[in-house]
Design a protein around this nucleic acid. Sequence first.
DNA 1: AAAATTTACGAAAACATTGTAGTTGTTTTT
DNA 2: AAAAACAACTACAATGTTTTCGTAAATTTT
Lengths: 337, 337
Amino acid sequence: MPKVNLKELATQLGVSISTVSKALKDSYEISAETKKKVKEVAEKMGYRTNPYAGHLHSNRSKTIAVIVPEITNNFFIQVISGAQFIAHEKDYHILIYVTDDNCKKEEAILRYLQNGRVDGVLMSLSSTTKKSDHISELIQFNIPVVFFDRICHEIETAKIITDDFASGFNATEHLIQNGCREIAYLSISETLSIDNKRKQGYLEALSKYDIPVKESLIIKCNNDERNDYKKIFQLLQGEQRPDGLFASVEKLALTAYKICHELKIKIPEMVKIICFSNLRTASLLNPSLTTITQPAFEMGREAAAVLFKYLGRKHAQIHNENIVIKSELIIRDSTRG
Amino acid sequence: MPKVNLKELATQLGVSISTVSKALKDSYEISAETKKKVKEVAEKMGYRTNPYAGHLHSNRSKTIAVIVPEITNNFFIQVISGAQFIAHEKDYHILIYVTDDNCKKEEAILRYLQNGRVDGVLMSLSSTTKKSDHISELIQFNIPVVFFDRICHEIETAKIITDDFASGFNATEHLIQNGCREIAYLSISETLSIDNKRKQGYLEALSKYDIPVKESLIIKCNNDERNDYKKIFQLLQGEQRPDGLFASVEKLALTAYKICHELKIKIPEMVKIICFSNLRTASLLNPSLTTITQPAFEMGREAAAVLFKYLGRKHAQIHNENIVIKSELIIRDSTRG
DNA sequence: AAAATTTACGAAAACATTGTAGTTGTTTTT
DNA sequence: AAAAACAACTACAATGTTTTCGTAAATTTT
């Protein structure tokens, strides 16, 4: 089917281009009769409106970008799924970008988007991002940004988060209440908002129960598979093995699981493990894994909803706002007392 | 930053629009001196080229669509990740669409894309799709389509698949060699190519070992959570419980796992389980799950690579071609003899 | 010195659409 | 019967870029 445009339809029908355009848009200016004819011929000739011509004119692309640190991650996928749900409702398209937790890539992607390819952005920061210039720059180009999960405090906009502090506190308290006294915290990145909040919750819980903080139990991982493995291995094989382990993210808990299997460290008898996770198979693990589960799908839906609320307007300066959707502590065998 | 276009740059510089355009594109027609000036001013004024104007002119969008039945699925996510990897290299953008295994949605999405929003499509069929008209129609609009995994035989194009028949055979043979005689096959959709091939492999293996086929052991699931649960539950609770279980897709195996846990059916002692799966936590399950693991990332990479090979040309009729990337049988505890 | 070529740039069409501002011819109002 | 209103349509500018063709001046060739 050779692509046909309004011009061809017009000549074919013996009317003007404007008439065809308006007829297809059901304008009141066009008679019912003409509309019918135009639509028939358009159908017959396989006319499809060129989206890019429209975008050029309207300066809107009906497209948003979702930027995530990694895509092979249950949490982010569920967020994308939620965002996709709303976008589909609104007849919007979703472009996916992956930063690989690399701030350089993140910067490059945001620069890419300064040209108006998308009407707005949903994003979660890379764990290596330390500056926010590239984000404020994007916003200066009039592209609104909504954060979810890994937010950037410096930027004034809407941020969809979970109750990281409370959840971190609850997770740690749960370990304590099940008998743990030497609780390690596996950190994923020192610059990440969520990590800091979760750690604060952890520290607060320790404090509440008068458990001294041991720096040696705060493990600074950095999302490098081999490095993280080594650090957690060292933690678990040593004399001073902790009796509880709180991983800030799923991946670190799974690494810990693997190491425990290798070293024949029994969970939960020798060490109890809890983590933030959206793993569908948490209940099927050996042993089933106690998790703090984030409402990922809802977070994606909410993030998209907030963005769309602003997209209609001319100057879409999004008000600063923290939207908190609570996580759920799901107790399973890995923390059995 | 107010958006600035070529026209403004031109007036600012006192040259013509064409000169600016060419200078920014490093055309040989422009002197080094002018280029430098133009670029400086462009930088200073924050010029960003409008992608849609370019698309309008070139009739290319530098965008491809990836259409998957579901997104919260390890296999599809890894495929997307692979495709994304290649797309990023080629400076292409990726639009994601989800059919929810609903053929109506699939048709709607493909109709959507007839307008040239994307230059090409990578897709995996929905399990409820029975006709292929919407796909050939899209191709008639000159949008090339490459299939991966859930391919459509009727369409002449490139198809990236794994060795489903051989893998189905190997999986079944593996169960037989570990002592199973009553092996159930969990089918996900009767219309899906991969399901049929895997089942053929299953039947072939039974035949090789002179094991009679029992229709009651071929369970026709349909991707509806509740329905599938019920069917598998009935299979496992009855008198005639099989001693081996081969699930065509991960989800069904996980449902079977849950049911076994509930009914206290011991894996692998009472029933051995194997399935196609890209679960990262397969080795951590209780018991660890024997899988046939598809090279999902590579399949995504390959699918994108094939598509890009054709995208350069004017009439991108993709030759019919089956590209097979072999799966790997990873033996774990769920099939221990 | 005339002719040919090269360098560096500009004008304008083309891409497909939308929206505004006409322009008819007809109908209604005064 | 003139004026106003209206229905149905068209012309054209505008959106931002690319690209082809053209042209003047400068340079090289004969």
